[in-house]
Design a protein around this nucleic acid. Structure first.
Lengths: 152, 152
DNA sequence: CTGGAACTTGAACCACGCTTCAAGTCAAGC
DNA sequence: GCTTGACTTGAAGCGTGGTTCAAGTTCCAG
């Protein structure tokens, strides 16, 4: 083998901007794996950088590490997962809508003169009808998660 | 006073879809406050429902509770906060971009036949250049947060 | 007046996503 | 061969955003 461009964990860390501890954490969670070891030390193939880019992107979009793990392991044959992916895409669509409204409202708020700012009618309009559907029947005395967090 | 449409915590919980414990939590964090008490029991003015709608929206857009608190307390005179709001709006813009790319990629992945799906070139293209800028000089032996999380 | 459902509190607990620590190993340069 | 600095491990710790629990209070219907 002429070239053997294996990276050690420090190198991967520097090139991705992630902490080595985060890389080990992702490994425990099954998101990445080293090609092998040099002694005790993990050695990575450069492809891991791309994979970590994807992971970082998905994380920043709010996917959980567990979700990303399932996604990275996905096979075309996994119809269930495909359905969940489609559903997740729809969640993302809603999320994009909320973000967009919030962004616009925030931009307005930044130049608005209402006192306090949140009382501005323009602001309220921009935020729009954000109310999650609710007020349909309730039961349990105290709590319990209302939102299933949209799992992949 | 003819009408006295005060709500108790259970009512607010049902109408917002939030758990009473979450309402108390938000109160401790200064996001909401009851109008008063009926005995020990909190009584809320209906306006709180709107406020909670806003809070829920902002939370779902990824703002932290602390951030929302600062925002809710905002006065037009707070120039600093305005700047942070503008900056946050820009973050949201980037976020929207990432979400959009991820959504499209996910949609493609859901119908893609690559084995494993993440290796699909179309998918990779859709995700695009997601790499956070990095590989510029590193120091500390292990960790340390690379990202300041964009505070309002 | 009495009973029960719903409220009150503070403190403990949970999951998530890492970071930090202590103690030890080891590859590589001098 | 020795040093040294980056790596290894597992366990513990942290911040966020709540939930859950225990113990007690109280509003209100009957």
């Amino acid at each position: 083998m002429p070239d053997e461009p294996l990276l050690d964990i420090g190198e991967v860390a520097r090139r991705t901007g992630l902490a080595p501890s985060a890389l080990r954490f992702y490994e425990r969670k099954g998101l990445i794996a080293p090609e092998g070891r040099n002694g005790l030390r993990r050695t990575y193939r450069p492809e891991v950088l791309e994979r970590l880019g994807l992971i970082t992107c998905a994380r920043s979009a709010g996917l959980s590490v567990a979700e990303i793990g399932r996604f990275l392991a996905a096979r075309p044959s996994d119809g269930d997962l495909r359905e969940r992916m489609t559903a997740r895409a729809e969640d993302l669509d809603e999320q994009i809508g909320r973000l967009t409204r919030l962004r616009d409202s925030l931009r307005h708020a930044a130049v608005c003169t209402h006192e306090p700012i949140v009382d501005c009618p323009d602001f309220r309009r921009a935020i729009g009808n954000v109310a999650p559907r609710a007020q349909t029947g309730g039961d349990r005395p105290d709590a319990g998660p209302r939102r299933r967090p949209a799992q992949l």
